[in-house]
Amino acid sequence: MPDTPNTFSHQHASHCESGVMSAIVRHYGLPLSEPMALGLSSALSFAYLPFIKLGGLPLVAYRMPPRAIIRGLQKPLGIRMRTETFRSTARGEARLNSLLDEGKVVGLQTSVFWLPYFPGDMRFHFNAHNVLAYGRDTANGDYLLSDPVFEEPMRCAPADLARARFARGVLAPKGLLYYPETRPSEPDWGKAIPAAVRKTVRIMLRAPIPLIGIRGMERVARAVERLPATGDLQKSKLFVGHLVRMQEEIGTGGGGFRYMYASFLEEAASLAARPALAELAGELVEIGDGWREFALATARMIRDRDPFDPARLAALLRAQAAREKTFFGSLDRAIR
């Protein structure tokens, strides 16, 4: 595939993986918004996996697992993504350098903790961050990075980037890099969009295990309800704070990706000529507002501005689950 000369342009995005993938697709000639990357790869979700612990807290996600967007865009856009992991740091670095020398832009999975340009308070051991390398500074060898969650392009010294790419632990990136082998082509929106939406509806309403989708939310509500409300509240508060961090802090665009998916539905409505989706986008924005209310109520309880009341938080979560159940039911009917 011939490569366009280095005219890469950085764009600010909410989420790392959708931001990187929409940037790659745009760079190779097909305009694609971040919400479209999220929606078309059916990456919206909800999951509560209490048996996977990160820093002693259960895994909670408002989206599909890492790499879902990279993989999920291949079929609708007819783009073949090549992914490579490495056992040795030296090989991983050499491969990245040679791809950049060819003029490619390369997606990388990294840890957040070892990227020096992240603000100190955001540096946790989270291994599934994504950035895009688009060149090197010939003078000092620094990598030129487009980290979608930052407004401006970043740079990173080789030793730091190697450390971040080869961090170990849960979701270890193993130096993962990815780049397209073929150019993306514009899909038949009238087919690709309904197929992607149907998959999201299926995940949210009909997942085979009760920890995914609406049933996952209900399960979290039950876990919150059972938190001790008296005595030492430290642990209880860390648990509910964790829910909010996963919903807001991890670059979701607010409301646990619900606003971003609403933007996708709005765009999809005109591309696929299905005006019903635009109306549903409005409903989903309101659901996003509901998630923000939950975040605010939780934060106030953490700082003792309101008494800690797990039953109230559980009720808010149940209300969200009920609203999303109705919403995805309507979406299901609208897309048939």
Binding site: D121, M122, F124, K237, L238, G241, H242, V244, R245, E248, E249, R292, A295, L296, T298, A299, R300, I302, R303
Partner: peptide
């Protein structure tokens, strides 16, 4: 609200 939960961690 987000600052509060980040600082909490």
């Amino acid at each position: 609200a987000e600052e509060i939960v980040t600082l909490q961690a």
